[in-house]
Amino acid sequence: MFKNITHFHRPRTLDEALILLKKGKVRCHAGGTGLIPSGSDALEGLVDLGGLDLRKLRRDDEGFHIEACVTLADLASWPRLDGPACILAQAALCAASTSLRNRITVGGSVAQPRPWSDLPPALLALDASIEVVGGAAGLYEARDFFARNPLDGASIVTTIHLPALPGGAAFHKVSRTRFDYSLLDVAVYLEVQDGRIATARIAAGCALPRAKRLTEAEEALVGRDPTPELLRRVAEEAPFDPLNDMRASAPYRKRLLVVYLQRCLTEALEAAKGGTN
């Protein structure tokens, strides 16, 4: 029970919600699983997004459009999510248990990215864009969004857009048990043209304070012939400065990256060449 919360608002439109957020000392509420009981009186109210009907999943020629209050369960079971975008479903399935996936929303996962969030690495690899309304309104590239977290307290994430992609992708989460905070997430997207890597996006998360793209590794791949030797070398040499904590040391996480990046590159390459995912 969060005693400091004295107001629970249920706006019926986005505009109403934004006005409430501007008043301060309130925060958005969707699934509610990210709410941390606060001993301080800083948070007094919640603005529930449940009445805004931000639950649509849409697909068109440009790609996939996932509204913020779509739950991880609905995302993971969306039959129209295919191709490389499947890794987002994979990330959603790993992120939490069956019952929690019925509450955790995509928007919540993105708006309050914790170090252990599983969606951001997949979104980074898929070159997602995040649409925001309110004080920090705009359409943000995932890379930019997760690097600096532009949201102020008076903004709402409304939609996540994924471009339609031709290549192949892979995602891997390393954790001790199925339902566990990750030690490392790796997500890879590759496109191959004329036998060479045309596009490479590599993202790592959970072993870092913020999920991010491994740009040096990407650059080492683009334009090259994707031999196993190259993939191995790129994985080994990828600059990576991971967290050290009670669950795993930094050197070990680095080792995990080397191993799993190589495996994900191999898998993404297969998918890119095969045209299927």
Partner: peptide, 14 residues
Amino acid sequence: RPVNSCMVLAPSVD
């Protein structure tokens, strides 16, 4: 749908 009722805020499910 199955949910963890400890993680659901009661007012949000009116």
